[in-house]
């Protein structure tokens, strides 16, 4: 008996075969650790013990009833929301400048990407020197300009350390934001602005009624990208403050690492990771929906 397949069915089968290797690779590299992580979150899994029994929701109870988790969640949310909002505002401003007819526009469009191209760990080392309370250039500039009298110990002051880290994140990530918004700006037809000008709209009205609505999908996409990037940020926190001083910068990434690999409690570490994923989804899904909502005519 021979099976006679329609052309459509054959195409579907061919497509399936083509995506199979990539699907398998994704399953092994992403889904396996994910499910492993969820499974581990239900175990009493300590590196200091040979036995790792199933402990139902004990890890979730322990994590959700600990002040450390909520403190880290607060640090993470403060960091992510502040950084993404500042990056959006600065990114829009820079993109508008680079979109206008300034001199050396091409040059500025090129060099603005330098901070983004620098590896995060290298940026950390650079800013460790810039922020240094004894030798750092930032203190020298602030003192010589009369803005401060006493040198700031930014990364060792519990009230300044998180701001210091945010500053580096903004410096490093804003260029990418700017370039993506700039691409969005270039996609807006000039004829719309011309029509608005004929109708008597000024620059401010054009910005709020043409530019911003047209940029909405781009802004939502870059906000989503930066939200995910910053929720997962580990390098800056680990290399600059390791969660200190006195937990002032202990983000969820640092708390997860500390719980799993310094306190050796892989079960609770995985639990924090799983809860962290759901918090991230909570933030990301609305942004995704905005980014992919059909454009109004």
């Amino acid at each position: 008996m021979t099976i006679r397949w329609s052309r459509k069915r054959k195409n579907q089968l061919f497509g399936l075969i083509l995506i199979l290797p990539a699907s398998l690779l994704l399953s092994i590299t992403i889904l396996t650790p994910l499910f492993r992580s969820i499974y581990t979150s239900f175990l009493d899994d300590s590196l200091l013990s040979a036995l790792h029994p199933w402990n139902h929701f004990a890890n979730y109870k322990a994590v959700l009833s600990s002040g450390a988790f909520y403190h880290s969640l607060q640090v993470t949310l403060t960091y992510v929301i502040s950084v993404v909002v500042i990056e959006l505002l600065v990114g829009i401003a820079l993109a508008l400048i680079l979109h206008s007819n300034i001199i050396l526009r091409g040059f500025f469009r090129s060099i603005i990407l330098i901070p983004w191209a620098i590896p995060t760990i290298v940026a950390s080392v650079i800013f460790l020197l810039i922020y240094n309370s004894d030798y750092g250039v930032l203190n020298q500039l602030l003192i010589s300009s009369g803005l401060i009298n006493e040198k700031l110990n930014i990364l060792n002051d519990a009230s300044l350390a998180l701001i210091g880290i945010m500053g580096i994140a903004v410096w490093k990530q804003t260029p990418l934001m700017t370039i993506m918004i700039l691409a969005g700006l270039q996609g807006i037809s000039k004829s719309i602005y011309e029509a608005a000008t004929i109708d008597g709209a000024g620059a401010t009205r054009s910005f709020f009624h043409i530019t911003l609505p047209a940029l909405k999908p781009v802004l939502a996409n870059v906000a989503l990208l930066m939200t995910v990037t910053n929720f997962q940020m580990f390098t800056l926190f680990y290399s600059l403050t390791n969660g200190g001083p006195v937990d002032a910068t202990k983000s969820l990434a640092i708390l997860t690492y500390e719980t799993a690999f310094q306190k050796y409690d892989l079960g609770q570490g995985a639990t924090i990771g799983v809860i962290w994923m759901f918090v991230l989804l909570l933030f990301s899904i609305p942004l995704y929906r905005i980014a992919h909502r059909p454009q109004e005519s």
């Binding site: 992403i30 492993r36 969820i38 899994d45 892989l266 924090i272 990771g273 962290w276 994923m277």
Partner: peptide, 12 residues
């Protein structure tokens, strides 16, 4: 997003 959750389990 799920890469963020794999940190704790990647070596277990």
């Amino acid at each position: 997003l799920i890469l963020g959750t794999t940190l704790a389990a990647c070596s277990s």
